[in-house]
Amino acid sequence: MIGVGKMKQYGNVLDKPLNKGKQEVSLSAFAFLFSELVQYNQTQVDNIGELERRLEDAGYAVGARVLELLCHRDKGNRRETRLLGILSFVHSTVWKVLFGKVADSLEKGTEHEDEYMISEKELLVNKFISIPKDMGTFNCGAFVAGIVRGVLDGAGFPAVVTAHFVPMEGQQRPRTTILIKFAEEVLRREARLG
């Protein structure tokens, strides 16, 4: 066996350090697993809104865990308490760990004060997925929206997060925008903090 004696053996899983090793998993394996997740959930629902909600809930559980892990690993058990701080944490740290890259853009909504958007030209979960015409505006990015909601909720920034396709000029494929609408209390707290 290679490396016997070199690797420290930990009897208890809790004694293992949480530092990153090589963290990448096979994209194909993930794509098949995600595809099965969507297919399974499709058998459990009778409309598209419900399917979107179920995917979002699946993502929420991931987000809550990711927040915990990253705060411990990267931030020395501290978490962001300011709006812009947590947004850039999602946009860069979380995205990098989950998708291997920083999100394409993070913008503030032009019409509403409480809306922010994270856009991605080709969202990893949508890489192999073609939505049939009869499913309208359904977007499997709902899973990622759920992750974002999980992170934000866990950090004390309750928000409504949704995923949308946005057509782009000169591009065959629309990009995916994750729309974040923060709860009123978050903005009030933010204003108080100045």
Partner: peptide
């Protein structure tokens, strides 16, 4: 294998209607 089999909306052995596969 990429754009048809990994697409959750494709049913095995049925006609292929996947936009990404076409592109």
């Amino acid at each position: 294998t990429d754009y048809v089999l990994k697409n959750p909306f494709y049913e095995m052995e049925m006609p292929i209607r996947c936009e990404l596969f076409d592109i």
